[in-house]
Design a binder for these strands. Structure first.
Lengths: 262, 262
DNA sequence: CTCCTTTAGGTATCTAGACGAGTGGGCGAG
DNA sequence: CTCGCCCACTCGTCTAGATACCTAAAGGAG
């Protein structure tokens, strides 16, 4: 039975100059927006839509790929096409690096995740010395080689963030910053113990589509951008002591900042 | 002549289990990354790639659509497929709402664009009273109706940002805030004159793929996400006096914030 | 010389069909 | 009753071609 015609989806307008696959995408999008298809729910199969609209399969697939590009749906091989659920987002407050948090001991990520009732994990540790990229070198003030600390963060098994910290060798080499686990309070606590009292941070935020690498590392669905955040930490002498390059799954984050009005 | 085989692109690996269209996309992506195809340059036409790889046209188009989804290339009907140039980005500093800037008179957007040597424009003014959305109402502290100020910003003719400010009616009605042009220093200057001395701002940042509406309004190329910024302004009595909802073309912006380390 | 038409070469859309491969339920053998 | 196989359904990939429309440059009419 064409149970589809039961109001969920309309017909095509052959007189319209709008491409058929766009018309189909429009109707599906509208049905999703109106909640006719709920989060996680399965859309009609390709075959059903072929039947309903009387078009070829490639046309239907084309419609799906439009919606996929918008991040509205995702396909599962052998199962169907589903409305992508808006995952619970993780809020990153601008005071997350406040000294008072650092003094508590545990890493900001772990504390916050625990508080939110999710299961945090840190992954794929790599700590090594390497040549500084042009960009990192500029930000750190013409440094040749750096200590790089790479890690991936997961929430409830889902990768949400991939970060690399770069520190000048003259600061980090031989200290516990060069250890896989830098100890309570993280590297910022260590930096302060080493006499680099932190003064302020600068954060640069971009958004873009992920590279294939990033898709793999963060297991991103298609149609999900990444937030690229580059933070530079300055000590009270005005020296840049760390650059942290972070790539986040955009559907997992809301960044939040407080700005004074002065 | 197959001038393509002259080293720019390789061959397919028929033994690989990687889909052919992905292999082609990989090769094109790599060639772009290595600068073999420069910004704005035309890629080989579909027909040429069909010839070169010995595949069907749909397969080549599939490859292009992968790269388009990554924001790497864009197609122009009747002309070809081109490497998408990275447009010059506009930096938004976190002190852009500092009182000292406001006291200068002109709007932050205009001043900044002039300084950067580009031609700024503000567009599609709309100022009207309307019912507050659930979200806006919550942020403003259970307000029913609001004054909404909508505008679109362009740089050198290119739309880069679309913003709506919401203000409680009891503050804005009948003041110059309800005028299309609120006067020097913008609505924040007017709010302060009305006795709402600003204390701080809260900004929430998300990134996502644009809706079809946003694609139209911002004339976005495919594969370009948007940055969605929601700013709430608080006066010194702790009252939320404005909510500004901004959607920015992600390829046109870098947001920059300074955070104290205290 | 200017303007319009033609044409070649691009992409956009659509069709019809084939085969591959993941998923899950039903059913028969044991 | 349980296990394992098979099959139906689903999306993934690819082919081969048809038609439409856009762009730019060449060439002809005026």
């Amino acid at each position: 039975m064409p149970s589809l015609s039961s109001g969920l989806l309309g017909d095509l307008d052959p007189t319209s100059d709008r491409a058929v696959f766009r018309q189909i995408a429009d109707q599906l999008r509208e049905a999703i927006d109106r909640g006719r298809f709920k989060e996680g729910e399965k859309l009609p199969s390709e075959a059903e839509l072929v039947e309903h609209y009387g078009v070829s399969r490639m046309t239907v697939r084309n419609s799906f790929s439009v919606l996929q590009g918008e991040g509205l749906v995702h396909a599962e091989h052998g199962k169907g096409v589903f409305v992508r659920p808006r995952p619970p987002v993780r809020r990153l407050a601008s005071d997350r690096f406040a000294r008072r948090h650092r003094e508590q001991g545990k890493s900001a990520f772990i504390v916050e995740a625990d508080a939110a009732g999710s299961h945090p994990q840190v992954d794929s540790l790599e700590v090594k010395e390497e040549k500084a990229s042009q960009d990192v070198s500029t930000r750190l003030g013409s440094v040749r080689r750096v200590l790089a600390r790479r890690r991936r963060y997961l929430l409830d098994g889902r990768p949400v963030e991939f970060a690399t910290s770069y520190l000048p060798l003259d600061i980090a080499r031989g200290t516990s910053i060069a250890e896989p686990n830098p100890g309570p309070g993280g590297i910022y606590a260590r930096l302060e113990e080493l006499g680099h009292r932190l003064d302020h941070f600068e954060e640069e935020i971009r958004a873009r589509m992920p590279s294939p690498d990033e898709v793999r590392t963060l297991r991103l669905a298609s149609g999900v951008p990444v937030i690229h955040l580059i933070r530079t930490a300055f000590d009270q002498e005005g020296r840049a002591v760390e650059v942290c390059d972070t790539v986040m799954a955009a559907d997992a984050y809301v960044l939040s900042y407080q700005l004074p009005a002065t």
